[in-house]
């Protein structure tokens, strides 16, 4: 199991051929109180870089892009009723969706923990 990060402040946790995706603590702080999350339907085929989910605060909306190509196998339906989970536990209960993928090599360009920490620090 390993976790990688995109420069769009998403994390993807890899377990076998399934990745769980959410946004980072830094991202939820920037957004403020999350009020709405739209997650993709299970079974949807997505391509790396495709916009697949939306997260909204009162004053901002952000698209969530698929960090890897594959099929959505699970979505966090609980976020519909408790979008605040994204603020409270961005890397836990606040996960968005899971993708079953076939080409793990697509993850090669992503950051690991140390690289992402450095990236966030560079943003000031």
């Amino acid at each position: 199991m390993s976790t990688k990060y995109t420069n769009e402040h998403e994390w993807i946790r890899i377990e076998g051929d399934v990745g769980t995706i959410g946004i980072t603590s830094y991202a939820q702080e920037q957004l403020g109180d999350v009020v709405f999350v739209e997650v993709p339907a299970v079974g949807r085929k997505v391509a790396k870089g495709e916009s697949v989910a939306v997260v909204e605060s009162v004053k901002a909306a952000s698209d969530i892009y698929a960090p890897i190509t594959g099929e959505v196998v699970e979505s966090n339906a609980a976020l519909a009723d408790s979008p605040g989970d994204v603020n409270a536990e961005p890397t836990g209960k606040g996960w968005f969706f899971k993708i079953k993928f076939s080409n793990k090599a697509e993850l090669d360009g992503l950051m690991d923990d140390a690289a992402y920490d450095a990236f966030v620090k560079s943003l000031g």
Binding site: A27, Q30, L31, D33, V58, K59, A60, A61, S62
Partner: peptide, 14 residues
Amino acid sequence: MVESLDRSQGRAGA
């Protein structure tokens, strides 16, 4: 995350 920056300031309802 494309357009989040700086518009979330001053969360109302403090």
